[in-house]
Design a protein around this nucleic acid. Structure first.
Lengths: 217, 217
DNA sequence: TAGATTGTTAATCGATTAACAATC
DNA sequence: TAGATTGTTAATCGATTAACAATC
């Protein structure tokens, strides 16, 4: 039974399901049960079935789930078939890493422009895109009705860039700067990739393990 | 009252508290109440007090929390005062982005070596480190008792690199490859930064908003 | 002192797990 | 048909919120 309001926890698990299913498909596996998935992913079969059931009925009693069907469903739920446009603001090493290695197409995004402020970068070609002058990305965004901006700019520019993006009508921001953007008043959707938050979690778990090990010795 | 087992949700909020407190300190604010924090961070005051109380008593009735004291406490909880060693495996654009822009020291980590497989990269100096031959990082890791490895290698190498790291006695892996490493049998702590998972969440929320807006028009 | 705000207990809410009828 | 496995309802568990005595 489709649910109206889906919890954030469920959403955050979907991409992982998808990666797992892609892997199965790659290995030539065409069907899978919730219990098999659970065993391999470290989740309960119940949770997996509950998660899927938020969006519809994708399985078959006595059989399980067809890998390809399920992949397609999850992909659609996640908006992968929407074909959205993206621009990247900041062509430093991180920006280049994304431009060169991240498969935007695979996830339904098309990278249509890249912006930077450095005079020696503007005009150069980076992974197939000529870098534009970052002092005026607003026009491009509103004219081309760009869906999302990828912010790979230095921290100090983050607030002002975010404000400009919101004003230009961007719909979402994929934020790699290590701060909270402070545009929660706008209806721009912000998805943060906070490297330091991630490293600090790792650091915490390392400390836990050290304490545990001490106790055991 | 200190708690024994802390939930993952609490841990994941701590780095954000820390960033907020750093910001306050930077602005010269020396005290803050849970309700003020809650208002600004979009959390309930209750939750903030509950979170802190997992680790001890850091506030004062009628006054609130001293910003500097609280920062120090949270930093310590997260292991920031431990001084751990890190190596980076894979000196591509992403590796360089981290080497050049990420302030490892600030979080208690020291980047002691960088490895890559490309002959034209090995031996070159990148942000103060001479890149070592990535075909033999195991010796270095076990000899220097390295704490964590940062994996910024191509997907196809991820599994084998992870296995070698585990065998060499690494304690944690900060994983930037877009896959689950499959070393859950070892006691290596893995912290994933899955770019695609993040983008797909953003994609989902964009789709939600589109549907909402349609409804309203 | 009076006002403010903590730390903590109790109440509520939501998420996960278990159980099972339905059915392929 | 018998076995397997779903989708869903009910039970449990845990996390968040509310309330308040303690006290600065």
């Amino acid at each position: 039974m489709k649910k109206d309001r889906i919890s954030i926890n469920v959403i955050r698990r979907l991409p992982r399901y998808l990666r797992y299913l892609d892997d199965l498909a790659y290995k030539g596996v065409s069907r899978v049960s919730s219990s098999e998935m659970g065993k391999q992913m470290g989740l309960t079969a119940s949770q997996i079935r509950q998660d899927f059931s938020c969006f519809g009925e994708f399985g078959q009693q006595g059989y399980g789930y067809n890998v390809d069907t399920l992949r397609r469903h999850i992909g659609t739920i996640l908006g992968m078939s929407e074909l959205r446009s993206a621009v990247i603001i900041g062509v430093g090493n991180l920006g280049r890493a994304l431009m060169g290695n991240f498969d935007f197409d695979k996830y339904g995004f098309s990278l249509v422009a890249a912006f930077d402020l450095a005079p020696n970068v503007i005009g150069t070609e980076v992974f197939g895109l000529v870098v534009r002058d970052g002092s005026n990305f607003e026009n491009f965004i509103s004219e081309h009705d760009v869906d999302i901006a990828i912010m790979t700019v230095p921290k100090r520019n983050a607030h002002s860039v975010a404000k400009k993006l919101a004003a230009a009508g961007i719909k979402g921001i994929w934020n790699f700067t290590n701060i909270d953007l402070g545009i929660s008043d706008s209806d721009v959707i912000v998805e943060n990739v906070h490297f330091s938050d991630s490293l600090l979690s790792l650091s915490y778990f390392l400390s836990c393990q050290e304490n545990d090990t001490e106790g055991k010795n």
